[in-house]
Nucleic acid binder design. Structure first.
Lengths: 188, 188
DNA sequence: TTGTGTTGAGAACGTTCGTTCTCTATGGTT
DNA sequence: AACCATAGAGAACGAACGTTCTCAACACAA
């Protein structure tokens, strides 16, 4: 296995473990056991656990972005593209492994003591807000609609994570529909 | 100082420290140093750090509930009562010590490994949803409005925490206004 | 075959944490 | 003054963590 592939494998395994049990609760020894690599090999791929954490965040950003854009791209109309975000959330919430937004979790766990984690979380959220803003602009919606829709998505994620059921996506979608319709009628 | 007062003091100090730096990052030794009590005294008041964490969550629930109800009670009309929630959030977000919802943070940090923390977080959120539902009912709004408004409040909290600015409260309030108006017009 | 560099397995190290224990000083009671 | 219970200060303990080191096994070149 190439070094690149091994790195990806460690990051993927770390992502799953961090997601299910939190970052600080997962030790390097468990990473070694699950990955089948030696500690020496892992430390040959990454200089520290902190570097693995950041790599996991980068991966999460990529997976999230690809997932949501793929889902949005399938929708045909500008307004159904916006609603597709919440359909993506609904599917995500129903996965057994769903445990809340990894960035919110990482920020809550390490944001105050690991500035780089806070930065990645902030960048991830800003990136999503900008994406929503572009979709809103594409639908000729008013600028203030974008942060509102983003807040709905954020709220759905934490509500689904803590309550443990996926209804939040449905509620957020319904709210988004109302906001979009209201925004469009005012814009036209 | 009475034992009750000392207990409160430890919980209050722990709340502040946990809020600013996360739960796991704060050790018992720091609690000792800041509180001025001996470790022995602290362990006389609480059987373990886990018990302190739960006491902090209970305190957070009490403070939050009192704060938001006080703000809501100041509003006169049923629909402005609903909007008062977001005004309360706006004030909270602007506090220097604001670091996101303590329950979301605790859940993210410990929910997967400390079931009691997850239960408290869930109970807290359910309690808030029920509160919103009562306010919505008082305003003769449709039942589906309540979870939508709750999701807006959740999203505002995480967005404000990660982005570091209080605008999220304003956006959430504006969205809530639209949802409330739409809900009322359909109900009437 | 011999020598050499590399690697895996995991022991070891230094630190930190939650918790308990020791020891000393103190204050009240007789 | 003599005794005892109490409590503070922090050392000590066992466990767990991230990281590094040791050492034996192995692959491969000469």
């Amino acid at each position: 296995m190439s070094e690149e592939a091994e790195r990806d494998r460690v990051v993927e395994i770390s992502d799953e473990l961090f997601n299910s049990r939190g970052i600080q609760s997962v030790g390097m020894d468990e990473l070694r056991r699950v990955s089948g690599l030696s500690l020496k090999a892992i430390y040959g791929l990454f200089p520290s656990k902190a570097a693995i954490i950041l790599a996991v965040l980068d991966r999460r950003h990529r997976v999230w972005t690809e997932g949501v854009t793929a889902r949005v791209d399938r929708a045909l109309e500008p307004d159904t593209k916006l609603l597709a975000i919440y359909d993506y959330l609904a599917d995500w919430f129903r996965e057994d492994s769903f445990n809340g937004c990894g960035f919110i979790n990482a920020f809550a766990e390490l944001g105050a003591v690991a500035p780089e984690v806070a930065v990645r979380a902030r960048e991830h959220k800003i990136d999503f807000q900008n994406y929503v803003a572009r979709l809103v602009a594409g639908a000729n919606g008013p600028a203030e609609l974008a942060p509102q829709l983003a807040i709905l998505a954020e709220g759905a994620q934490t509500t689904a994570a803590i309550s443990g059921n996926a209804d939040a996506a449905r509620h957020a979608r319904a709210a988004a529909e109302v906001l979009i319709r209201a925004g469009m009628s005012r814009a036209s």
